[in-house]
């Protein structure tokens, strides 16, 4: 049996000392070892995107990365998106525009959009729809997700967060 690795994982700016088998995916480590269950597991083969998190600011599938690989990297999850009680503009836009129903895919969409907008704040409407095709949603038919991200992109461009 493979031995466990003792590593420090930095998630949302906070250090977590974890002892993990190398076979544990980052998604499982975040959920089970760090107690951050906002990252959801929908397919474990990289298609649905429910487990999308940011690793060094890039959106990645946390089911397709092992936890040990996130050592010395900055991981961000949905739990770190809001600023205290103030929702991130993406969260606010999803709320106001009914960008979620069951909410299971929502953390993945939020982190996908957050990462993509950080890389390119000036994405066109078509580019936004294209990037959002990375993840699956079964409830909304996508249009309110697309609308929410477009609105949040405008809000983010308009000014820094309060």
């Amino acid at each position: 049996m493979a031995s466990k690795f003792n590593i420090d994982l930095t998630v949302n700016g906070k250090s977590h000392a974890v002892s993990i088998e190398p076979r544990r995916t980052l998604a499982d480590v975040l959920r089970d070892d760090c107690g951050l269950t906002g990252t959801h597991i929908g397919c474990e083969h990289g298609v649905c995107g429910a487990c999308t998190v940011l690793v060094d600011d890039k959106p990645v599938r946390s089911c397709l990365m092992f936890g040990v690989q996130a050592e010395r990297k900055a991981v961000r999850t949905v739990e770190g998106l809001a600023d205290g009680d103030t929702l991130h503009p993406l969260q606010q836009a999803f709320w106001e525009n009914h960008g979620l129903q069951c909410g299971f895919c929502t953390p993945g969409f939020l982190m996908l959009a957050a990462g993509a907008l950080e890389e390119n704040p000036d994405m066109s409407d078509d580019e936004i729809r294209d990037v959002l095709s990375s993840n699956l949603c079964r409830c909304t038919g996508y249009q309110n997700i697309v609308k929410a991200v477009r609105i949040a992109a405008r809000a983010l461009r308009a000014g820094p967060r309060a």
Partner: peptide, 26 residues
């Protein structure tokens, strides 16, 4: 070899691939 892992890890999650050792080149 584990590079991006975007094909290897799904195959491992399905247990279609069962390497005894991974060498992560990242």
């Amino acid at each position: 070899i584990l590079a991006g892992g975007q094909s290897l890890v799904p195959a491992m999650n399905f247990r279609l691939a069962r390497p005894a050792i991974l060498i992560d080149i990242n």
